[in-house]
Nucleic acid binder design. Structure first.
Lengths: 150, 150
DNA sequence: AAATAATATTTCGTGTACGAAATATTTGAG
DNA sequence: CTCAAATATTTCGTACACGAAATATTATTT
């Protein structure tokens, strides 16, 4: 009943449920302006890190490079982001928002997470503990991956 | 600095990072047997709920019906699951594992989450609190969605 | 300086993930 | 009994999400 496998399964399940819930709720907020959740995140990161490169953007958004390349592609097509080749290192690219991108970023800053605000009714202690435990989990999972590769 | 929007963003970010980490780690465990994370989950659910229908499976796996239909499709093509029309209600389907599906389920039961086991080094209290807080979050987010639709 | 390795990004193929529309069947209203 | 509403599933189009391979450029080796 209470074997380790079950415990892990519970944790995974809990994360999966919340992740899906977040995704669906955020989608509703952002559908009105024609953005996806990830596009919202990427817009935010680029706005806070002008002239960021693709690999760094991928790291900050926890996506692989190929995924990130596609997301940027759609943002460029939508006229929200400019992709330029870097002069110093012509392998790299340099990303920044267009006028329209800045506008949309400012517009969505306040409404992008509106429907998640019920979470703020939780005791501040709970939220703090949550973030702390998450951090511990990340450490446990990433330490092993560096010392015991493959 | 500490405005509500930032607090929410931190939470979302934390979940996103862990979800991506889980996904990547589980992928490595399961790649050896040719399963994806979701296929593993669906196999587990079907094995525990023989003759389950599609909608119910979708609910238990937190996916939409159309996504679930596709996942089942690939499991059927891989010869792990049987999809039959229900005799009582010919609109519904009834899912169960094949011999091969049962074998793979038993095989992956122990190895499917192996690389997540470092999480069990965390204090039992932390894990318990984590699950409790997650549960509170789910309640906060789903209550609103029932009373304030749209 | 030419071949080679390393780095940054894109492209490709497969598999989630969604909502909307299409299909099939059952249930309900008249 | 018939036609419309409801329910269950699939199909379609778009957008993540990954790794592997391809491409382009820079750095290193010899």
């Amino acid at each position: 009943m209470n074997d380790p496998q079950d415990q892990l399964q519970k944790i995974v399940n809990s994360f999966r449920q919340l992740h899906q819930l977040f995704y669906q709720i955020r989608r509703k907020d952002l559908d009105e302006v024609g953005l996806t959740s990830i596009q919202f995140i990427v817009l935010k990161i680029i706005s806070e890190n002008p002239n960021i490169g693709l690999s760094e953007l991928a790291q900050l958004s926890y996506m692989g490079n190929s995924t990130t390349s596609g997301v940027v592609d759609r943002l460029v097509k939508a006229g929200l982001v400019v992709r330029e080749r870097c002069m110093e290192d012509r392998r790299s690219i340099s990303l920044h928002l267009t006028e329209k991108g800045v506008e949309l970023r400012n517009l969505t800053y306040s409404i992008g997470l509106k429907r998640l605000s019920p979470l703020l009714e939780l005791p501040a202690d709970d939220i703090e503990q949550l973030l702390t435990i998450h951090q511990k989990m990340i450490e446990k999972l990433t330490q092993r991956r560096e010392t015991e590769p493959q």
